[in-house]
């Protein structure tokens, strides 16, 4: 089989092409997604509730059947060569699905076997120690707290030494300390060459962790960008001036500033980078005075995640 040759270095480890998904209910959760994940990167999928993050991950992992499109993991098609593809993947699901009566140790060794690896007590011990679960290895899972259960799920996902790790909202319902531990763990895994794809609602988390960020909204991947570049876009503030008299267009004299008209010409909107020491506001206001453009009110606002999504969607269509 030509497809079974492992991907060459530099080839994306996960390649999604034209993926769509419509659930039996008729709801289209994903619409023609194209995405390539590079080997060894940390990729954050950002999006509001119901955007389709979990659907995308579950399709790649084999839990949800794909609609149209093709997906490969390290060059292996996830449908035709599901064994080779899935053996490389570890998944920590969004929901805390665990076996109540099993011990931590037995559930982790079970996962290793299920994914086709010979028993290796040393590796399982390492994983449990790294997640501070070693002391609780004999405990029944149902006796653990929610945060501990999430660690157990992470341990299960790492038991078979995956090359690609999916973390579906790993920090939901997790306290600050565990969150920091988890971030440290993700970085340590990346050091070892593991590719990590995580979903989150929090821009800050994506900012802290990711090399690249994808924003998904209503089943569409509306932007995929390197973190630094995206953060420059996201870190913007807006100054809105309510004008006395509406303008037909942005006067050419104001060409030096990135300005837009809003509210049918009644508002002049200046978007600027809040992180810069020189925001350009003072000069703008002076220039407006010189041009006799009066305004009755002004306010500045920071773009929220929701606004960014909406803006991204608007600029796309």
């Amino acid at each position: 089989m030509p497809d079974s040759t492992p991907a060459a270095p530099g080839e994306p480890i996960v390649r999604v092409a034209g993926l769509s998904k419509t659930y039996a209910s008729g709801l289209t959760a994903l619409n023609s997604i194209d995405l390539s994940i590079e080997r060894g990167e940390i990729f954050a999928l950002l999006g509001p509730n119901g955007a389709g993050k979990t659907t995308l991950i579950n399709i790649i992992c084999g839990i949800v059947t794909p609609g149209g499109g093709r997906i490969s993991v390290a060059g292996h098609d996830i449908v035709r060569e599901y064994r080779a593809a899935r053996a490389l993947i570890g998944l920590v699901p969004q929901e805390l699905h665990t076996d109540a009566f099993e011990s931590v140790w037995s559930t982790v060794t079970f996962s290793r076997g299920l994914f086709g690896r010979a028993p290796d007590a040393r590796h399982c011990e390492q994983v449990l120690r790294a997640l501070s679960l070693w002391e609780r290895r004999e405990a029944k899972i149902m006796t653990l707290s929610g945060g501990m259960k999430r660690r157990v799920l992470i341990a299960k996902a790492l038991a078979h030494e995956p090359q690609v790790l999916f973390l579906d909202e790993p920090t939901a319902g997790v306290d600050v300390e565990l969150r920091r531990e988890m971030w440290d763990m993700v970085r340590a895994l990346r050091e070892r060459g593991v590719t990590i794809i995580l979903t989150t609602h929090y821009i800050e988390e994506a900012e802290l962790m990711a090399d690249r960020i994808g924003v998904i909204h209503r089943g569409e991947l509306i932007v995929v960008e390197e973190k630094a570049r995206l953060m420059r876009k996201l870190g913007k503030k807006q100054l809105t001036l309510q004008l006395q008299r509406p303008l037909a267009g942005v006067p050419p004299e104001l060409g030096a500033w990135p300005l837009e008209l809003g509210d049918a010409g009644h508002a002049l909107i200046y978007t600027f980078d809040a992180q810069r020491s020189d925001t350009g506001i003072a000069q703008l206001l002076r220039r407006l005075q010189e041009l006799n453009i009066d305004f009755k009110d002004l306010h500045s606002s920071e773009s929220s995640l929701e606004e960014i999504f909406v803006n991204l969607v608007r600029t796309r269509s």
């Binding site: 064994r83 993947i89 699901p93 699905h97 994914f115």
Partner: peptide, 17 residues
Amino acid sequence: LPKWSGTIFELLSAPVS
């Protein structure tokens, strides 16, 4: 039981036929 508790996700995502 795994269907009911949700742990079936692991079986579905595993390299098994």
